[in-house]
Design a binder for these strands. Sequence first.
DNA 1: AAGCGATGTCATCAACCGTTGACAAGAATA
DNA 2: TATTCTTGTCAACGGTTGATGACATCGCTT
Lengths: 171, 171
Amino acid sequence: MLRAACSAFDELGYDLATTREIGERAGVDPALIARYFDSKEGLFIASIAYVAEDEAEVDLETAVPYLLGRWDEHGHNPISRALASLGLSEEMRRRVAAVIAEWLQRQLGDELAARGVADAAMRAELIVAIAVGIAITRANGTLEALAAADREEVLAALAPAIECLLAPPGA
Amino acid sequence: MLRAACSAFDELGYDLATTREIGERAGVDPALIARYFDSKEGLFIASIAYVAEDEAEVDLETAVPYLLGRWDEHGHNPISRALASLGLSEEMRRRVAAVIAEWLQRQLGDELAARGVADAAMRAELIVAIAVGIAITRANGTLEALAAADREEVLAALAPAIECLLAPPGA
DNA sequence: AAGCGATGTCATCAACCGTTGACAAGAATA
DNA sequence: TATTCTTGTCAACGGTTGATGACATCGCTT
């Protein structure tokens, strides 16, 4: 059921992923959502925590390929859609922000700090924001050449830019 | 009324910007939306065309600062939110894609082609996607350090990366 | 003044949303 | 076997959405 929720949230976004749709995907009654997770918002928060469990270890250069690989195609990750959503409740926003912040701190924070870049946190989040923008526009197809391209092409074009972002002139 | 629709679509996104909310912002009855624009979707398409009218001329290096300046704060531009939306109807998707494609072709296409970069269209759209990701995450506050930063800081950190994206090693 | 199209308001509709509580079926316990 | 707890289904509710059609009101023309 968590799996069904993740796929629905990923493909449709929070608002359009109705409880009935999720229930149908999971093969159960929509009322079970309210029973087990209190509410649709509770299910969403649980989904975030669920996918946040198994995040791999990456370093800075491979962060964008990693995130894009997780978000781009196989479509079971509601986090990228939450990052690109506007109507989040304060509770949901806090939860998503905490998951991302913790992951960044654990995986990338000290590496960036070791490089001596002053605004390390902002640059790390900038990488996430870039991945979000690419993932969401590729998903909805509004940027047609980008959506049609292979992920490898996109990553190849992006790689030197990420490098420049992480190794600014002053460092 | 178009102005009210743009601000509502921008702040709330397409789904959450209800006809009643838009009507209240414009100081008129929600039923006028159906009368003048046939439907809410018609109003959205009209809003897209409305803001697409006065797009300035920019070159490649200043495209991201320009887009971020238009999308980041003053909040009357539904295009960035459309680019980050998932539930777009096929008609809406086509319209948004056409507006962006035309703008890119007119402003950036030949400049990129002149540089001899093979996958020019994809790289140009990549710039738009990056701006979308930054604008949307700054708007919803899920990336807290990025949302708290000044736009100038963000652009300063981003500038060399954009340069690398536009002038790849092979060029 | 009489007629009339344009402009905007109001009550209302059907559809859909998330959520609830009553209830059935089965396992577990005694 | 009788009871209780768990697990799931079902119909229904109140609320909200986009859209509709009847109605008022104003300005213009003749």
